[in-house]
Design a protein around this nucleic acid. Structure first.
Lengths: 244, 244
DNA sequence: ATCATGCAATTGGTTGGACCATTGATCCAA
DNA sequence: TTGGATCAATGGTCCAACCAATTGCATGAT
């Protein structure tokens, strides 16, 4: 016999209750990102809890990136918050830059392949046109600067994710992108990083335009493979330099 | 010209300093998950900060799932913690409808296929043995209750993600799992949900044990396909009932 | 001796009040 | 108009006490 499953009782959970109330308030007032929330002191007074409890609750929201606290100024909403929203922090154990970068790439490979495939099946003429324009902008930047421009490159990929018809892909890959670039502040000594990935952008676009889902997936996998190769090349160079 | 990039100044950041010190302590003492951390009062005394500040810092770690606080008992380490950890909040918007459930499944399909494939390439004998035990537990529960048990099923999949060698997969799929089940409290009228997925669990395990990455991926895709089919079946039934 | 009961210490959770540090607006003088 | 001084508002920190849950020990009955 299982365990009856009737422990829903929860005498007290002060700060959780505070966050619940605050989420309701935000929704009721239709607060947008950037708007200012009530003062900690006011919240404490209105909710009939200590200011300390309010602070612990806000600390949790701050940790989730939902809110930003500026001393002397106030507390401001940083992201949309609604009851039907899942907030969850991703943790990546650092210590080894190379391994962490490869892990984000493995996830990106999984997501990007699927997103490109879905895009090829679902995208409409408008989204396709936008993707083409982003591609041309990227190619132009590539030729004028003689190298990959991460900004235009990223916008091209984003346009694809948006056209996949599933907003989760864009959010998740954006998280991977951000994690990748946080480790990227010290370039790992790779020259012409991403150079090899250039031609695959156009081939991906062509497969999408041809509504060839599997072809687009294959090209996306090739693109990620070139990035992984660049990363491995840099790591090998670093190891060699360390031994010398 | 870009913006000079010189805002590194950071006069004080008490709770950050507390967490940094605590991370160093954990590493120095080689504390493992499950071990007990010093009392809040002791930390406050040793670090020469207020207990309140210690609490805010621990609240952040609790939000990241790194520690667990038990009133009357103490604060316990819940996950490995290293000084150079990267945290990134992930917020996903979802709705309680058929489309949202399908979107979580699309993401899960992408991630699960890749994770299973990586697992087949990387898993060691110990992890493989754990996966086998989880599989047997699940099969036992299936036969005794004549139906899928989501608890044992989930543990089986988790064992695979852990053996994939990339912790991001477990975290991301856990987010999808949570979103899916948050809206699953009212079964959408599907009887024997997940029943068809049962045989694929064993076939996935066998492909992993055989180090057949592509075969494992194929079986994982079949499994997800059965879940999608169940979902579509339920949606069709709902639409039919609505029209009647 | 063994087990149950209950007291007491430990520990996280909460409260209220005070003060510090930063910010932004207001006011005043050059 | 401009520049600086002042001051109120607001988040950050501190302190001391008490509440609530847990744990362990001691006492006592069996």
């Amino acid at each position: 016999m299982s365990q009856l499953r009737l422990p829903p009782i929860q005498t007290t959970a002060r700060d959780d209750a505070v966050l619940e109330a605050l989420a309701g308030f935000v929704q009721q007032e239709a607060l947008q990102p950037g708007d200012k929330l009530p003062t900690e002191r006011i919240l404490a007074e209105r909710l009939k809890v200590s200011r300390n409890t309010v602070r612990e609750a806000l600390t949790r929201w701050e940790g989730l990136g939902l809110v930003e606290r500026l001393q002397g100024s106030g507390t401001f909403l940083k992201a949309a918050v609604s009851p039907h929203m899942l907030h969850m922090p991703l943790t990546l154990a650092g210590g080894n830059d190379f391994a962490s970068l490869m892990q984000t790439l493995e996830v990106r490979r999984a997501l990007e392949a699927e997103a490109v495939s879905l895009c090829a099946m679902r995208t409409g003429p408008q989204e396709l046109d936008l993707i083409r324009r982003k591609l041309e902008t990227m190619e132009e930047a590539f030729h004028s600067r003689a190298g990959m421009s991460s900004e235009e490159d990223w916008e091209f990929h984003q346009a694809i994710y948006r056209a996949s018809g599933n907003p989760l892909f864009e959010q998740l890959i954006a998280a991977m992108h951000e994690m990748f670039h946080r480790f990227w502040e010290h370039p790992l000594g790779v020259r012409n990083f991403g150079h090899a990935s250039f031609p695959y952008h156009r081939s991906i676009y062509e497969r999408i335009a041809a509504r060839d889902a599997e072809g687009a997936r294959a090209e996306a996998l090739k693109l990620i493979a070139t990035v992984e190769a660049d990363l491995r090349r840099g790591e090998a160079a670093r190891n060699q330099a360390r031994q010398a």
